[in-house]
Design a binder for these strands. Structure first.
Lengths: 197, 197
DNA sequence: TGTCAGTTTTGACAAATAACAATGGATAAA
DNA sequence: TTTATCCATTGTTATTTGTCAAAACTGACA
């Protein structure tokens, strides 16, 4: 399957398109390859593109005043990534986005995305729906953060994204869950409490 | 200004519409009035509508396993509210949405919203853009929750939403910030630390 | 094969925040 | 106005999670 076909098959989960529309859409994307540890978004630069992951894993994070990393998002195959807020407003980024593995990405520029959305109602529908799903996803994450303990959040994450847990370093996962890498280590290595009976 | 005009003026922040389009859009909305303490969304019922606030204040919250409230969202004039995730998926809600004051709301049904989005590319654009802003907003909230202490989160909230702080009860604000009402009280009544010089 | 950088683990101690309990003020209904 | 309920405050103690420091592990590569 070509990269364009991979985008197309993702697209068709949301909207039904003609051959021509598929070409119109996917031809706006450009393949890029990034090596592990390479950055595709950095603070103070306007993110000109967003990225669809064909292969590999990435991580978006901010660095707090205290100098610590806080992971905002992961992305693997079939996910999108950028500094979302900065991208849609075309403002300087506040995040880093870095490759956790060697990656193949499909890149679309902000202008091309605008063009696509203006060109065809169905493309607009696709982006609208995708954005609604993001909103719902983030709201669920906020609910989990508000209502669950660190251990529960870890268990929920491993159940929801078992593949991801295998592929991301533990310090990155810890900072996504809002805890330190040491504390995550302790959670993982908790001995089951001896039965009180 | 009529209620329809209020929706129209909100709309026009995002898309430029003709007279007819404005009527087409706003005529789908129906005014409802709810009294303080009245619920417009409850767990286990599918939220058939979302609501645009003409007047009043509301609060969306979940109840955790331990029986405590966790505020997910507030809404005052010009904001929208529902159980977002359940609304877009038309699934039973997990939230309560309750009026904190007597309210006047403009209600649109899920079906009417779908119709509008299908009918006119510009309406689709409006909903897409609004959803993008929600995504960006929630992402900023997650970043704040990950990177800031309780006191800092409170200060950021009061700076960002000074009007809201005056109108919502403190227990609701505390649960939005992810802290107990007692701890919020302590934060607010902190005496400035005596100068060490 | 050994070395080194990056990562994870472990333990002792500290900080942030919650839990509990009691009190007093505010508000709204009777 | 009285009464009952809800809400905010305050003090004390308990829990969760962070900090710091050291050691153990891992995998890439010289």
């Amino acid at each position: 399957m070509t990269n364009q076909e991979k985008i197309a098959s993702y697209l068709e989960k949301f909207v039904h398109l003609t051959e021509n529309e598929i070409i119109e859409f996917t031809s706006r994307f450009k393949e890029i390859r990034v090596k592990k540890r390479q950055f595709i978004v950095q603070p103070d630069f306007v993110p000109k593109s967003r990225y669809f992951v064909i292969k590999g894993a990435l991580r978006a994070y901010v660095v707090g005043d205290e100098g610590k990393d806080h992971t905002i998002q992961f992305a693997i195959e079939d996910w999108w990534i950028s500094d979302y807020d900065s991208y849609i407003h075309q403002q300087p980024a506040s995040m880093f986005v870095v490759a956790l593995e060697d990656c193949i990405l499909m890149q679309i520029s902000f202008e091309d995305e605008q063009t696509l959305k203006a060109l065809n109602h169905k493309f607009e529908t696709f982006f609208r729906y995708k954005s609604e799903l993001s909103t719902a996803f983030l709201q669920r994450r906020i609910i989990t953060n508000l209502t669950k303990s660190a251990k529960e959040r870890y268990d929920i994450f491993t159940e929801s994204f078992p593949k991801l847990v295998q592929r991301v370093p533990q310090y990155a996962l810890a900072s996504y869950l809002g805890i330190t890498t040491q504390f995550l280590s302790k959670i993982r290595n908790l001995k089951p409490v001896p039965n009180k009976s």
